[in-house]
């Protein structure tokens, strides 16, 4: 059973007679109970896609269905069964934690008690502050409250638009742990993020850039598409090292990656030897050269260039 089906969706925005394509001819599907990641930078079209799927926008072309319901014709049914957490914190800042949750339970015709089991793990962490106004919560707590509110009616599909943007690394880790618990409850989760490292936490991902999908696969599958050997190099003077490597005409790309530079050659062959030559010529010390497995970010950058 497919929870979400997207077929050839396109959407244009016209601002001052200038049309920009937010989404062009996007197609994918999400299986039931899957965590599907939409990975891409700001402006890639992630929010537009989520708004189309949550019936807030109508696409210019193409078809989409959530839980078997058409997003245009049957939007009322979708509104009953989808949970949505927009990118911007969208709760009432002047209402308390409990008032917010009660409100969202009521407008979905349910009560906190009815589905407490589903949100228990998450809500318990913020329950000590239930009389505090939502506007006075920390970033991590706001995020937990927003997730509780999106879950309170036991949605079958959960749409999370950049839930971890601007959240620190610790809260991000906790958030993803929560998502995996929800997955075990059978909820389908569509989540978007600009953080490439979060891709590995999804079952499948779609890499998206400028309204186009670059690749759809499992995180492993995406990295398998990376055909050329990838090299990680480090030495004492990293910035100069990058400059030297980049001037080599045989180098296709060289990007800093944490403490290493990741390098791909145009015509792979004696890659290691060529790197060693560069290091020798530049009199670098403490050099280290490794052949490594690419990660999602390597793939994303390679796909962006294509």
């Amino acid at each position: 059973m497919q929870s979400v089906v997207v077929e050839n969706i396109s959407k244009k925005y016209v601002v001052k007679k200038k049309a920009t394509e937010a989404l062009s001819d996007i197609s994918f599907h999400v299986d039931k109970g899957e965590i599907f990641g939409i990975i891409g930078p700001d402006g890639a079209g992630k929010t537009t896609l989520f708004r189309i799927l949550t019936t807030l926008l109508v696409a210019d072309a193409g078809k989409a269905a959530v839980d078997g319901f058409d997003v245009v014709k049957d939007y009322k049914q979708i509104r009953n069964r989808a949970g949505y957490m927009p990118g911007k914190f969208s709760l009432y800042q002047d209402l308390s934690v409990q008032e917010n949750l009660e409100f969202f339970a009521a407008i979905f015709n349910t009560t906190i008690q009815e589905n407490y089991g589903l949100i228990k793990d998450i809500y318990q962490q913020i329950e000590p502050f239930r009389t505090r106004k939502a506007g006075q919560l920390s970033g991590g707590m706001k995020q937990k409250l927003a997730l509780s509110c999106a879950l309170i009616h036991k949605p079958s599909v959960l749409f999370l638009d950049e839930p971890t943007t601007g959240v620190d690394a610790v809260s991000r880790k906790e958030f993803w742990e929560m998502l995996h618990r929800l997955k075990r409850e059978g909820i389908t989760i569509l989540v978007s993020t600009p953080y490439m490292d979060e891709a590995s936490l999804c079952d499948r991902v779609a890499l998206i850039q400028k309204g186009k999908i670059l690749s759809i696969d499992t995180p492993k599958g995406v990295t398998k598409q990376f055909r050329k050997p990838l090299w990680a190099v480090k030495a004492n003077e990293m910035y100069r090292l990058m400059m030297d490597i980049k001037t080599d005409p045989g180098v296709e790309s060289c990007y800093p990656f944490g403490q290493y530079h990741h390098i791909v050659f145009k015509n792979p062959g004696d890659d290691k030897k060529r790197l060693e030559e560069i290091i020798q010529k530049g009199h670098f010390t403490n050099a280290e050269i490794n052949n490594i497995e690419p990660n999602i970010e390597d793939c994303f950058m390679a796909l962006m260039k294509e």
Partner: peptide, 13 residues
């Protein structure tokens, strides 16, 4: 403006 309309619209209300 606050974005809450987005969430309310996506409810059966």
């Amino acid at each position: 403006e606050m974005g809450t309309m987005e969430v309310i619209l996506v409810s059966p209300l």
